[in-house]
Structure formats: C-alpha cells, structure tokens
Design a protein around this nucleic acid. Structure first.
Lengths: 156, 156
DNA sequence: TAAGATTGAAAGTTCAATCTTT
DNA sequence: AAAGATTGAACTTTCAATCTTA
C-alpha cells in the first residue's frame, strides 16, 4: 500500500494545497506591504525583530539566527536597508569582529506605521477564517514538521 | 477582546511557526533537490506540470496559471531551462501569438530520476510525522485560507 | 483594445571566497 | 582553526515597457 516514496491521494492533495497556499499568501502579503508601506515582507521581518530587541539593536549573527537566514543574505539585505535609511550599523565595543545593526528613527516609524494594516491582513485572510481548533492544529502540525526537519538536519 | 488588527498569543505563535516552517521546509527541499538532481524546486514544479500534460507540452499562459506565476517570471525561467536542455519551445499552429513549451527527453529523464527521492523527502519530513487527522486538518486549513485569498482578491 | 508572450533593468538570494578578530 | 561578518559573481524574481497577433 504505502510502499515506495510516493504520497497517497489525500497526502498529495494536502501537499499541493499547502504549496499553493504558501505561494499565494506570501505573494499577497508582499504586494500589500509594498503598496501600503513600501516594504517587502523580508524588510518587515527584519524591522519586527529589531523593534522587539533591547535598544532597537541586535548583532547580525543573532538576527540571522532568529530569521533563519544565511549571514550573507542578511548582510546584503541590511546594506540595502541601510541605503534606504531604515537601519544603521555601529561598531561593537566588546567584540572587535562584530557589529551592531540599529533601528533608525525612520525604521521605527516604518514598522509602526506598517504593522497594524499588515496584522489586519493576516487576520482577515487567515485567522478570521480559522476556528480555535484549526489554529491549534496548524500550530501542532508546523511544530511536528519543524521537529522532523531539525532531526534530519542533525543526522545529515 | 479582539478589537484592533492584532493577533492573540495563540494566533501569534501559530503564525510564527507557519512562517518558520515555510522558510525551513522550502530551503530544505531546494537544497536536497539541488544536491541530488541539480534542479531547483521551481524547475521541479515546471517539469512536473509538463510531464503530466498531454504530449509533454503546454501553453505558457496555462503553465503560468497552474503554477500561479507571473508570465514574465515563467518566461525568464523557461529561457534558463531551455539553455540547460530541459525544455524546448515550438511555435503554436492554431494561435500565431502563442507558443508551446515542450518537455525534452532530457527534461523527462530529469524529472523521472528526481521524483522518487524528492517524494521520499516530503514523506519523511512531513507525512510520516502527521496523523490522518493532521493531514485532513492541513488540507482543510489551506483550502479555507485559499478561499479567503480568492475572495479578497476578487473584491480588490 | 486585449491576450499571449518576451525583454531589460532593478531588486533579492545563494554560493564560495575573503577578511578580521578570537 | 573557528566565529563574526562582508564581498563579488551568478542566479532568480519582480516591475514596467514592449512587441505581435486576435
């Protein structure tokens, strides 16, 4: 029955629905953020982390770890955000190799003005549609698969 | 209680888990496909659609619609796949504006040799971990949100 | 004018290499 | 040598403009 690597019909349907949801949802959030706040979803996530950090500043390695981004992606992205005045870079006193990424005043304004509408979109397309048990199931499913990914990364 | 756009704690947790899963899962599938078959996940999806189509050929607009890609993204992507010999382009007899994208022999070999291992990865990180009711919940949740996205696109 | 499709430029991402400090 | 971080080149995606045929 389930010999071989293949998915059965129900799994296949769920998998394709998941992939489609990913694509459409992220595209939609990107489009809306871009139109409303001139931010990409990636910009938004960077700004959220920084705005939640003490003193609006983080070390790049911690930010990369938090976002699950490669360092080089973060470095390029911060360079672009810096050009736009959303973040700045400062030297790190305690560690000569390191640096601080600091949220600028404009960066804080940007995230504070973008967040309500973005949250409203997430709520309206996702959480307004889901029951409490749907939300619990989503959380449980994501954590199971994340655990599987971590395990199989550890093996590899 | 739920005034304002904000998510409550449970929603917030589920949302961040979903975003993290997306990032890690797609990164993992891309890495594995690249290592095992020298294909990106995007290549893989294009090849799957073509291999399921009659005669291994589709019109670009239909392929773009199926993948939910912008035409221009598809056009650039097909150009790169064509350079690598995975697909070819042919003129379309019935419609002078149009074209056919055709799976080459090498393209078919590529998808047929990549598919078992890719399916095994999806199974091992996702479906081996989920109960039948998890799979049903995942499918239901995705379809609810996709419906919400379609509705709110229609309004906009 | 609209549909099917492509193009070029700009923005974003990955990979390998590099640089400095620990 | 390893950790923190950046760089340059190649690849991918988006956006607006364009071209041809219906």
């Amino acid at each position: 029955m389930t010999s071989g690597p293949w998915l059965d019909d129900r799994e296949q349907r769920a998998w394709r629905a998941y992939l489609r949801l990913n694509g459409e949802l992220l595209a939609r959030l990107n489009r809306d953020l871009q139109a409303d706040a001139a931010l990409s979803l990636a910009d938004y996530h960077v700004l959220v982390r920084l705005s939640e950090a003490d003193d609006g500043r983080m070390r790049p390695y911690a930010l990369a770890d938090d976002l699950q981004w490669e360092q080089s992606r973060l470095s390029h992205h911060l360079a672009r955000m810096q050009r736009r005045g959303l973040v700045s870079r400062e030297e790190c006193a305690g560690d000569g190799r390191g640096a601080w990424v600091v949220l600028t005043r404009a960066g804080r304004r940007a995230i504070e003005s973008a967040a309500p509408k973005h949250a409203a979109t997430v709520r309206s397309v996702m959480f307004d549609r889901l029951s409490a048990s749907d939300v619990a199931a989503l959380d449980r499913i994501c954590r199971k698969v994340l655990a599987a990914l971590d395990e199989s990364d550890a093996v590899a």
